[in-house]
Design a protein around this nucleic acid. Structure first.
Lengths: 218, 218
DNA sequence: GATCCAATCATTGTATACAAATCGATTGAC
DNA sequence: GTCAATCGATTTGTATACAATGATTGGATC
């Protein structure tokens, strides 16, 4: 869904926000963006509206759109919801997961282990993505899968940051092992709990990271 | 957020879809809607884009937008996710709920009971709304609250239908009692379970309703 | 008679032009 | 000197005009 042009522009603007080009609170000038992308204001407006729905920017009538990066509390809240969605996916997947998917999960986990050994955060991040997406898919609930992917995508840049924390990759790895074990044995409640805490701890880690960066802010 | 005109138009189109004026699969002609609302195509396009995000319509590039009413399976999936969100809200609310909110909850429940006695489905529906919204709010997680409200709103017309099933109102009432009890006692797990099944059963009920209406469809 | 190709037509996507509204600055009064 | 109000400029919201893409229909050929 979406028109080719506005879609790509929306993605590019999103990258610019995540990349830090547009800081928190910046007003996104339609005309400036139009000349920047070499198009009219119309596709820009559509692109900005697309960014409004995930909450990446807020639109104030007759004022313009402003980039809205979530603060520490809002971020914690989002991770909390993400944890619940993952837990739900895990609970369902424990009963429905296929043996082929279990193999894929183990394979992704093995590649994660290699990344930990190589201290390659980017590689770990990538394999971690597939690990979680397999679980979403195996929940057998395509709506849940779509919602989880949506929020996962929104939190992506923050997950990435917190991976750099000392020892986090190894800890995350151990949690992955527990999750796979629970899914293998079809223990729904255990899988749900393991996934919930696995994600929730990311929010807490990030909270600490933020607080340490700006001691007396907000 | 949004421009006054496009916002109201989006709401009106939404009502037209829920009201059955625009059936499943109907293509929403921009020009026709423009003359209908007495505006240009531009605000119509913005309104249609707003409806795309909740999944009310699907936009196919260069083809147009089509109303997309969820089928039985998709609906079940949505109720399943809704159940998890409610369960999460309940688990959090069990620890954080204020005494004032507990009073509000009991009051809403009392009004629900009156509605059951009067066999007034509309009144029950209304009080049921506030009952659930109090729980969302008391989760203390405003992001969760917003997400729950969003999905709740999407499922609204279907909840309404299944309330008409014989005995459903009374059963729902009993479930409400159990939820309040769990919240009063601060039993997080119990509150979560009660809310999960309370919502999940709605999806199942609706599934039965659908199947009985069209015996050999889908 | 059926099928395939092409041209026309309708509808969406984009650009530009116009109107309305908000923010800032300047000027006047107290 | 400070505050308020009005005027102006910038920016968003809407309308219209143009371009491009996809559907449909007509004709020609096999």
């Amino acid at each position: 869904m979406g028109k080719r042009r506005a879609e790509t522009i929306a993605d590019e603007i999103e990258e610019l926000i995540f990349g830090g080009t547009f800081a928190e609170g910046t007003r996104l000038d339609e005309h400036a963006l139009a000349v920047r992308f070499g198009v009219s204001r119309t596709p820009i407006r559509e692109a900005l509206q697309k960014l409004t729905l995930p909450g990446l920017v807020t639109h104030i009538p007759n004022r313009g759109v402003f980039v809205h990066q979530p603060g520490p509390v809002e971020l914690m809240e989002m991770f909390e919801v993400m944890a619940e969605l993952e837990a739900a996916a895990g609970r369902l997947a424990a009963r429905r997961i296929s043996t082929a998917a279990l193999d894929d999960l183990r394979a992704a986990n093995a590649r994660c282990r290699e990344a930990v050994a190589a201290q390659d955060a980017d590689a770990y991040y990538l394999q971690n993505e597939t690990f979680h997406q397999i679980i979403y898919a195996q929940s057998g609930n395509s709506f849940l899968r779509a919602e989880a992917l949506r929020l996962h995508r929104r939190l992506r840049p923050f997950r990435r940051h917190q991976l750099r924390l000392r020892g986090r990759m190894a800890q995350s790895m151990a949690e992955h092992e527990a999750i796979v074990a629970a899914l293998e044995q079809g223990r729904a409640a255990a899988a749900a709990d393991a996934l919930r805490s696995h994600v929730a701890v990311q929010g807490e880690k990030f909270h600490h990271l933020i607080s340490s960066l700006r001691p007396a802010a907000e």
